[in-house]
Design a protein around this nucleic acid. Structure first.
Lengths: 338, 338
DNA sequence: TTGTACGCGTTATCAA
DNA sequence: TTGATAACGCGTACAA
């Protein structure tokens, strides 16, 4: 496969390489007929601009970086897929990078990466999107950043988020509307912005309904299955279990289901359980989980757009995009027992 | 952040840029003291070779591509993490790409990608690793390929695999040793090499034990939850369910667990269930699944090594690496009822 | 063992 | 609206 370069195209089209460049980059000031002639040659030859040459001669690398604490989590997968799809649609590529919080040298590792690769921009996901030093590093390298669902200083960078607080409140209202009064809540890890939002939304709704939240009905979890197991155990291994449990994510909600089953507590007859995220797991549970669908795919796509569009100087303003959630009603919620 | 280039380093170290280049690439023919002097400047300045310049002037892009049918699957996540970790250890980066089987233009999309980015090599995962046209395209671009667990023409490219057949046989023997005779098998999709291997391993073990496999005990699945549900339903919704089920992956095994529960068939007392893969799901199931742990992380890391090492001319030979599996015994297997 | 000069493929500058 | 030419940062002949 002989590599066709901009020179070949220029020669065959009888124009200069700069003109070809203009056409490829959609710049103005090219006569329509010239543009067409060039495009024809491009199609014939299958010419594609070399990414490295582009990256070298301009700041535009066509490379978007996505940074994760744990790139193998289901959440990361969703985000990656959204970012990947949008990147491709816009002629970019996606570089996946891990920031290992347990590695003492994450800063120098990241620094190395940023020196080597001049990214169009970086997508920062929770919880690392809330590390100030991390953002400082990107700033120092002049790499634009978009954060997803940050908990801290929202004005610092453009961001994409979901209104978790409202979603949580709405879900709580759903439970209340079903007659539930004694509702337990399993928290997520404080390091995640979403975690606090979900907790506050729950409080909002309970308060609005004139219900009080008893301390022993609020458990600490960390979004992981095991923590959900532990929380559910303390909740259900008593004579007076709550009539409903709102877990801060599906993994923990799933754990509640498992513990309920072990204790012979049928869902949703004697206990209603709801989660957050709408992971594949929510549909595999039995009964299937009522949950809040997180539009991770769309969130990631929006983040990519923000990054690529920010490269255009006209709108260097900070942006803040909110993607709508949806509540997915399935089988894990029933009326409160009388 | 002023960008430090090879020239700056050369100037500060009082050597030529070529010498710096030699040091950075670990080439021979540099006096030890000169090397040290250069390294010192490199550390002081934090100099890192620019990836684009490197990719442009040589064929070495330091970019490894990983190609997936579905980059958001748990399997893909595992592979990505393994590849990512090893890439970083070896000073490379990972580019994730999706090959959409349903998109009619996947070939031209891929062609574009390969023209734009000169990859060090590509990792091809199931099932796309078995599309001959796909491999042809990489060949045409001169991009080295390593396939993971291919089903077809193993001699065509270097590959990394797990002995699924033996693993499946071993798992079956485990069931037989527990006294099971009436064992059902849920197949995976034929497009995946692993699927056929697992089926053959099952047959191997059954035959070796002098047991016959009844047609109605063999169900077709596609590795997805829903298919497992359907298979389990036909298996268990009869008066004479089998005493054990071997599902070709955890997702389907999990479905068997769910259906068993619905039918009031307790596991492992009345039914033993085993899976394949050792996904997170296997530990979330109740009872927890006995399964074959797939070393996806190690497999991916090995693939990266193969790719990077193949860049060294001396061993252009085809390689074939086999990574060992392990059987994880958990709670879903019990002795056969008498 | 070290250094010089050129080329990689593209974008950017500035003149035409 | 176009084109000639200089960067961009590095690797590689080839020479010293």
């Amino acid at each position: 496969m002989t590599r066709v370069t901009i020179k070949d195209v220029a020669a065959r089209a009888g124009v200069s390489i700069k003109t070809v460049s203009r056409v490829m980059n959609g710049e103005a000031h090219v006569r329509a007929d010239v543009r067409e002639r060039v495009m024809k040659v491009v199609e014939e030859t299958g010419y594609r601009p070399n990414m490295f040459a582009r990256g070298l001669s301009s700041a535009r690398s066509f490379l978007v970086g996505a940074f994760f604490d744990d790139p193998a989590s289901p959440y990361a997968s969703d985000i990656q897929r959204g970012a990947l799809t949008r990147c491709r649609e816009r002629g970019h590529h996606l570089l996946i990078e891990e920031v290992d919080r347990d590695a003492g040298d994450w800063k120098s590792t990241l620094d190395t990466t940023l020196r080597q690769v001049r990214l169009v921009g970086a997508i920062l996901t929770p919880p690392i999107c809330d590390w100030p030093e991390l953002i400082d590093l990107f700033d120092a390298h002049g790499v634009p950043v978009v954060r997803i669902a940050p908990a801290l200083v929202p004005e610092r960078t453009p961001l994409v988020r979901v209104d978790d607080r409202r979603a949580s409140a709405e879900m709580t209202q759903l439970l209340i509307a079903a007659g539930h009064r004694d509702i337990a809540f399993i928290k997520g890890p404080p390091a995640h912005g979403s975690s606090n939002e979900r907790w506050r939304g729950f409080c909002d709704a309970m308060q609005a309904a004139g219900l009080t939240v008893a301390d022993h009905r609020v458990l600490e979890g960390d979004y992981r299955y095991r923590s959900g197991l532990a929380a559910a155990e303390t909740l259900l291994d008593t004579g007076t279990p709550p009539s409903a449990v709102l877990a801060s994510n599906d993994e923990m909600a799933f754990a509640v289901l498992v513990v309920a089953m072990r204790h012979g507590i049928t869902v949703p007859d004697r206990l209603s359980v709801v989660g957050f995220d709408d992971m594949a797991l929510a549909r595999m549970a039995w009964p299937q989980l009522t949950t809040v669908h997180q539009p991770n795919f769309e969130v990631a796509a929006a983040a990519v757009d923000l990054l690529i569009d920010a490269a255009e100087p006209q709108d260097a303003a900070h942006h803040r995009i909110e993607v709508p959630y949806t509540i997915v009603k399935r089988a894990s919620v029933g009326p409160a027992a009388v």
